[in-house]
Amino acid sequence: MSNQFYPLFYSFHFYLFGLMALASSLMFVTRKSPVAAAMWLVATMFALAALYIMLDAQFVGVMQVLVYAGAIMVVFLFVVMLLNLGSPADLNDMRGKWGRLLAGFVGLALVAELMALTKSPLDLRLVLPAATDVPPTGGVIASIAAPMFKEYLLAFELTSVLLLAAIMGAVVLAKKTDAR
């Protein structure tokens, strides 16, 4: 999808999905119930997947829906329901007034710092590069597969070791032990 044919249509939907992502992530951090929070996080991830597709990263958008919204969030919901965290005593998990004030200050400071860096007169100013769009060569997936299996082949192979270690670690940690 490109913005050269229908620029107004494109920017309308870009802002729409951006606002959806922002609004559902705000709902996500303010929900008390873990299940409701997980559902709002799924909505955030779907909006981000739409943004990925609009930014010409169709494969990443599909992987976002399959892996994040489909697999990782199901694992989270599975654990929430396995541990039965719905009781009212568990729900009140917000920190106190000072903790929330401090957290809001840290969050505002992070955003303000990034915005200030783009306008700073110093040498360390963040400058958005003025490069032109790189046209995708050889299709959507082939342009990802070429660097992945050439330059980053070692990293790709090491990820499989990482996943194996994570699987074994998860099984060992979650196993019931009768040793005590």
């Binding site: 922002l22 705000l26 951090v29 873990p34 998990d93 917000m94 920190r95 809001g104 955003v111």
Partner: peptide, 21 residues
């Protein structure tokens, strides 16, 4: 948008006590 989402995540980590959230 990326900066805003990251900041919301940081605020969530700092305000919530439920380990899963």
């Amino acid at each position: 948008l990326s900066a805003a989402l990251f900041a919301i995540g940081v605020v969530g980590v700092l305000t919530r006590r439920n380990a899963i959230i």
